[in-house]
Design a protein around this nucleic acid. Structure first.
Lengths: 211, 211
DNA sequence: GTCTATAAACTGATAGAC
DNA sequence: GTCTATCAGTTTATAGAC
């Protein structure tokens, strides 16, 4: 309250206590779960004490909500700013998927947390709406597929079903990426699988294909 | 200890307290998470008191582990006892997937819990090895695909990639099935998507296909 | 086996000094 | 802003009567 954004006195440079709490909390929420990650855990991991956490975020829920809002905004950004090139539907699909996958790989802890709360138990965490992001991603894929069908690039067919197939592959790749132990499938692997799959969707297979 | 399996005296028939605890616990673990579902929650939902829970299961972890072991054994059973018919690879794949999907749909709470602990935070729950089930399912799919390629039913190609695609669709269908709100994709829907997908894998498309 | 009563540890949260 | 000290409520778990 007294000073606004001057240099910190004692803390080692550039690392706001605030940010340290956010970092430690995300890691712990993602690996132990919202309920199992206690404020004690968080403040110990962040190298500060409980009152600082409550000073910045009000309570545990406030801390959680701020984490969600920050990272959700980044998803929005990534989903908005895709596709400027006017290449083939196949390339646009691969580009979109790659962008999202990279995003997940670079923010694994958040997506781990998001996925488990979206698909699983609430863990006592305050409600946070994730449906729109899944819907946006689904819609973006479907749109490209329908454009590909309209242009003759893809065989005619049920675009909804095709969308589910694409989303399925991506979902599985994301979830394997999110797991802490072994990442069975990586960025290139996912692209190769998409190549194979989209080749099967193309109009005249194995004529100009490179396979 | 005194009597072994005689009729219960006071409890309403056929509902062992033990089983009621298991039922209530699974529901709560699946919807609130292991850590957030307290012993109090469980005993309240089961209509018994805490000491009975500890009498039967030792502690919260023991209760959880027994739940896991029981339901995991059922997965084993389902995975072992598939495929007796010697029909086409496509039909065998659809049959396997249908069997598993039905299994998930009939034991939603358990799979909800299993999936989120496998892919997400531990929630403070004792470790339970789920990898083998995922591996078995993956291997079973891959085996059928390779047989289909060998017999000429499927186009030659990377069986590993094809397996990932199948698993992706199934994974997404399962997870949507597990969510409590809207089940977007059902049993028939999954089968239709598999039809579309496997048609694309077949050797000569659109000749004898039923579209 | 099932209960009442209660212990012992933990959890989210705050008061108040600096 | 950050700390020490601490509280009130909760959570896991048990002792002991019936």
């Amino acid at each position: 309250m007294t000073m606004k954004k001057g240099k910190t006195k004692k803390r080692n440079i550039e690392s706001d206590s605030r940010q340290q709490i956010l970092d430690g909390a995300l890691k712990l929420f993602a690996h132990k779960g919202y309920a199992a990650a206690t404020v004690r855990d968080i403040v110990d991991a962040s190298g500060i004490t409980a009152p600082s956490l409550y000073y910045y975020f009000g309570n545990k829920e406030g801390l959680y909500m701020e984490l969600m809002q920050t990272h959700c905004a980044r998803i929005d950004q990534a989903l908005e700013s895709h596709m400027h090139t006017s290449s083939s539907a196949k390339e646009r699909l691969k580009d979109l998927v790659d962008k999202i996958f990279l995003h997940v790989a670079n923010d694994r802890d958040f997506f781990r947390l998001m996925f488990t709360i979206y698909y699983g138990p609430s863990q006592g965490a305050p409600y946070c709406d994730f449906i729109s992001y899944h819907a946006k991603f689904h819609a973006a894929i479907k749109k490209i597929i329908e454009e590909g069908i309209a242009s003759g690039e893809f065989q005619p067919g049920n675009s909804g079903h095709m969308t589910w197939v694409i989303r399925g592959v991506v979902q599985l790749a994301m979830e394997e990426q999110i797991k802490e132990d072994r990442k069975i499938i990586d960025r290139q692997g996912l692209q190769k699988i998409l190549d194979m799959l989209l080749d099967r969707f193309e109009r005249l297979p194995s004529v100009n294909g490179k396979k």
